[in-house]
Simulated scan of single mutants.
Amino acid sequence: MSTPSPHATPRPHTVYYNSACPVCEAGVCAMRARIAEADVEWVDMHSQPERLDALGLDLEDVRERLHLIDSEGQLQIGAPALLTTWSLQPRWGWLLQPLAWPGLRTLTSWTYNAFARQLYRWNRRRGHW
Rank of each mutant, 00 (worst) to 15 (best):
R65T: 00
H7E: 07
W86R: 10
R91P: 00
T111Y: 02
P12Q: 07
G73L: 11
F115E: 00
L55T: 06
I69N: 02
S2W: 12
E41C: 13
L96N: 11
L96G: 11
Q76A: 13
R65M: 02
P6G: 04
T108G: 07
L95I: 14
T106V: 07
V40G: 04
T108V: 06
G27N: 11
T108F: 02
S2A: 14
P102F: 01
I77K: 01
R117I: 04
L99G: 04
Q48W: 13
H67E: 03
P102I: 01
G56R: 08
Q89E: 09
H46S: 03
T14P: 01
L104R: 14
V15W: 00
D61K: 07
G73A: 09
C24L: 03
P4Q: 10
C21E: 01
A26N: 11
R51C: 07
Q48G: 13
V28Q: 04
L55C: 05
G127V: 06
W42T: 02
V15Q: 02
A8Y: 04
H13A: 05
R105H: 07
R126G: 04
D61V: 03
E64M: 14
S2L: 15
H67V: 03
L66H: 04
A79Y: 01
V15I: 10
R125K: 15
N18P: 01
D61M: 08
E25K: 14
P80T: 11
L83Y: 03
E50Q: 13
R126F: 06
Q118P: 00
Y112S: 06
L52A: 08
S47C: 10
V28H: 02
A30C: 06
D53T: 13
D44M: 05
S19H: 05
A100N: 08
N123R: 06
L96W: 09
L75E: 10
A38E: 15
T9N: 13
D44W: 03
Q76M: 15
M45P: 01
M31C: 10
Q74Y: 13
P98H: 11
Q48H: 15
L96R: 11
H7L: 12
W86C: 07
L95R: 13
A79S: 10
W122T: 05
N18R: 01
P12N: 09
Q89L: 07
N18M: 05
R105Q: 08
Q76W: 14
Q89R: 14
G78R: 04
W94P: 03
I77P: 00
W129V: 14
R34E: 13
